[in-house]
Design a protein around this nucleic acid. Structure first.
Lengths: 147, 147
DNA sequence: TCCCCTATCTATAATTC
DNA sequence: TGAATTATAGATAGGGG
């Protein structure tokens, strides 16, 4: 769509590339909004320019937009991937569950063991809480070095 | 870009709307791939049709694509928003931290960490005791299966 | 970078099969 | 839905400021 037909391959000239990105980026953004309003479709768009600048579009309306993109922006805010966080948390939960499983073979009828189980859960949670607490405290320390 | 000028507002006729979505969806997809190859930009696109069908495009290349979209697809797999999960986990952590706070009321950072250490040791020993207890009980059960 | 201009190319609305 | 056609609206390459 220009004075010359354009082959779809990487534009070598960095200057032209940036200009093309600017123009086409706007174009897609417009298309996305149009699609969204015309068809009532949920559209999400993320673009990183050659220089790394982010442009995004989200039609605020439905579940997915408030999940994917919200997640993404939080991810940016936290400067730490939520995915990694989530994986870690899930791993911990899994490990904890595995541990628990090994302790409870077939003994639902024996009250003392059930009770032990209860206690074990309690202290497991307690230790997790303590670890979390320690991390938080350490973080507080780091972020306020004057203390 | 058609025989008539189109006002950008929701297309009332469901049939026309679906057709428009189909065409324009493909169009944006093409644009996204073009932008990606022409400019070396990372582009991610998610579209939900009026009927709820998902179309997506991701230029596989950089970090973001493997975070946002991976998250999204996992989210689909789990049939439960990761966001909600995360919120829940964070809530649990928060609650745990709140509980822990009661163990260390008003001490300075260093001491509260030391104290946490102390509590941790305490519950670690506790859990060891419980495990021993349970093993013993289980052993008792195995050796007297008639009960 | 951003805007403007304009020749041209491209996308697509309407239509038919 | 889908594919093809065609007229036309819209996007944009190249160039200038």
């Amino acid at each position: 769509m220009g004075r010359k037909r354009l082959l779809i391959k990487r534009i070598d000239n960095p200057c032209s590339r940036q200009i093309a990105y600017s123009k086409r980026g706007k174009g897609i953004l417009k298309k996305a909004t149009e699609l969204s309003t015309l068809c009532g479709a949920d559209v999400g768009l993320l673009m990183f320019s050659p220089t790394g600048r982010l442009t995004s579009y989200t039609h605020k309306g439905r579940v997915w937009s408030s999940s994917v993109f919200l997640l993404y922006f939080r991810h940016l805010d936290n400067e730490e991937t939520l995915e990694r966080k989530l994986c870690e948390l899930n791993r911990k939960i899994y490990e904890a569950q595995e541990k628990m499983r090994s302790y409870s073979p077939d003994v639902s009828n024996i009250y003392s063991i059930a009770e032990a189980q209860h206690h074990q859960q309690f202290v497991t949670k307690a230790i997790q809480r303590i670890e979390k607490f320690k991390k938080t405290k350490l973080l507080e320390k780091e972020t306020s070095p004057s203390l």
